[in-house]
């Protein structure tokens, strides 16, 4: 069993059994992270390049560690230090990196679809580490992994995603993954931040946060990009946090054992009130480990086998 594509561009393009394969493989990888010597020789001689056109600490570090734990050589390129500032196009940069013997390119880019362009340009594997508002598949897989770990399953769970769904690649990857694995998903936030055609995406959309949280097994609160307010999508941070922020009273509507998640970094007191924010922090270390395990699984599944038959 292997992944059908040599690229990981989005969860919309993955089948449920492929997603489960990644989660199962991540389970095995997690043991390695728990060791004193966190290293296996699997990807010796392979080169992983992270190409980040947007700032990121946790995703980039997570991929880098995943590569290093599996003995791959890792190189990180950030826009400010590369030829990009000299006006080189994405395709030219990608071809140059490929010439240098790259086996997998992990890219983050502010424009949706850029990883598809990259995948068409190079012959090595491409992993989307977040493209514009499109997808962030490794984050989606990490969230699925965490949910499965805490709840023992995904099918049949009620999952509420709260916040700026419209502009969120994390929300998109989450809702594809969750619905494929049989969860019931409801998205909520101000109507200006909800996607058009939510029903067609297979999820329920409501602007009443209380309605969305009621009976939820999992509540995933997205980071609010504060600059959206300047774009006129909602009147003020104050009104947002009062009307749509997740606080103790609203969270009480969910199941007593609700799993509260946040992809980070958090705007404390905006999308999450301080008192519930602390409970999220308690699981953040776990999330970091899970993130590395999921990315190790992706690297193994993309690079660990021979050529596809």
């Amino acid at each position: 069993m292997r992944l059908k594509s040599k690229h990981v561009l989005g969860l919309r393009e993955m089948e449920a059994e492929e997603i489960n394969l990644v989660l199962d493989t991540a389970d095995s990888m997690k043991e390695i992270i728990g060791r004193e010597i966190k290293k296996v020789p699997t990807l010796r001689g392979r080169t992983l390049v992270t190409l980040f056109y947007e700032p990121s600490t946790r995703t980039r570090t997570s991929f880098e560690l995943a590569g290093k734990y599996m003995s791959a050589d890792t190189v990180n390129i950030a826009t400010t230090t590369s030829a990009v500032v000299k006006g080189e196009t994405l395709k030219d940069t990608a071809r140059t990196l490929e010439m240098m013997g790259t086996d997998v390119l992990v890219m983050r880019h502010p424009i949706s679809g850029s990883c598809h362009l990259l995948a068409r340009t190079v012959s090595c594997s491409v992993i989307n580490a977040g493209d514009g508002m499109h997808e962030h598949p490794s984050q989606g897989l990490l969230d699925l992994y965490t949910i499965r770990q805490k709840k023992g399953k995904i099918a049949g769970l009620r999952v509420a995603i709260v916040g700026d769904i419209l502009h969120s690649r994390v929300a998109r990857s989450n809702l594809w993954g969750l619905t494929k694995l049989g969860a019931e998903v409801v998205v909520t936030g101000p109507s200006t931040l909800l996607p058009p055609a939510a029903q067609e995406l297979g999820v329920r959309a409501t602007s009443r946060v209380e309605e969305a949280l009621e009976g939820a097994d999992v509540v995933n609160v997205l980071r609010l990009q504060l600059e959206r307010q300047k774009g006129g999508l909602f009147p003020s941070i104050r009104e947002y946090s009062r009307m749509f922020g997740v606080n103790r009273e609203r969270l009480a509507l969910a199941k007593p054992d609700v799993l509260l998640m946040h992809p980070g970094p958090m705007n404390r007191g905006v999308e999450l009130s301080s008192e519930v924010a602390d409970s999220v922090y308690s699981s953040i270390n776990e999330q970091v480990t899970n993130g590395v395990a999921v990315r190790m699984a992706l690297l193994y599944l993309l690079l660990g086998g021979g050529e596809a038959a």
Partner: peptide, 13 residues
Amino acid sequence: HLGYWSTVLGLRG
């Protein structure tokens, strides 16, 4: 176009 596909693809509509 703003609609289902722009939502799926995360492109501004």
